[in-house]
Design a binder for these strands. Structure first.
Lengths: 146, 146
DNA sequence: GTAAATTAAATCGTACGCAATTGAATTGGA
DNA sequence: TCCAATTCAATTGCGTACGATTTAATTTAC
């Protein structure tokens, strides 16, 4: 590794960190009317794909622990997005299910985000390569942290 | 915008968000022995480049407000990394200066991070394109949020 | 059948991020 | 000169992130 590689590593990490904060801020604009935060929206995305997941499975998909999810899910339950229930078969688990409000709101929320993207005239397809590279970076980082 | 673009936007945001959290975790391994967090390390990086910056200039570079920096800088001062002082000319500003400890520790800290990268056999130069793409993404997001 | 190991959610403590407000210091225009 | 506008840092409040521990339920090994 050359001396410069230290700078590259630093810059790469900061660029990802910076982009993440800006992206979250962008989503915030669209999600605020729904009283949703970005991590809460991620939970909805996962449940829209597959309803009635146990907490640990949600955590696996989003890479969150129960220390993050437990209070987050309680807030979402308080806002009427989901219900938390114990299955009869295993009282250790906690099943998270969407409310009707959450199922119904999906198109409206997608439209709100869509609007924000369209307003800015973003060519989303341009970012296919960026997505692929991020996936590779994530895989590398996961190997590093194992 | 095609229907699929919604999915792409969602995936792109999540990939950046996920990568950022993993990268921070990676740096944490190297920084923990120094009692430094990643955002605190960013402050050191900026001050190593230019010592004695006012708080708002640090904030501009790192995209942090005083609500984030004020407590963070107090913690760093408590740990002996920097000093906070009011310039005689303008009592509104707060000048942040490195301590000798912070100036001396730079090579040691860089070595610690370097070690983590080398141990994992990462080809850092591979990520030049990713960095460039992230810069473009950041520029787009900044335009969108203006 | 029961004690030990495992699994799962919750709790605790610390440190960000950030919108919004406050309050002190400085500047600039009438 | 004097006061209104501006510029800063600090404060407040809320919601993540996450390491570490705790507590409860279930599995397993014997």
């Amino acid at each position: 590794m050359e001396p410069d590689d230290m700078t590259l590593t630093n810059q790469l990490c900061f660029s990802v960190y910076h982009a993440s904060r800006l992206f979250t801020k962008f989503y915030k604009q669209a999600l605020e009317p729904f009283q949703l935060t970005y991590p809460q929206y991620l939970v909805l995305l996962s449940l829209w794909e597959e309803d009635r997941q146990p907490l640990h499975k949600l955590g696996e998909r989003l890479d969150f622990g129960s220390n993050t999810l437990t209070p987050l899910l309680k807030r979402m339950e308080a806002n009427g997005w989901l219900t938390r229930s114990l299955p009869a078969t295993d009282h250790r688990q906690l099943i998270v299910s969407l409310t009707e409000q959450a199922r119904d709101a999906k198109p409206e929320i997608f439209t709100a985000i869509h609007q924000c993207v369209v307003q800015q005239n973003i060519d989303v397809s341009k970012y296919n390569d960026t997505l692929a590279m991020n996936h590779e970076l994530i895989a590398t980082l996961q190997r590093m942290l194992k």
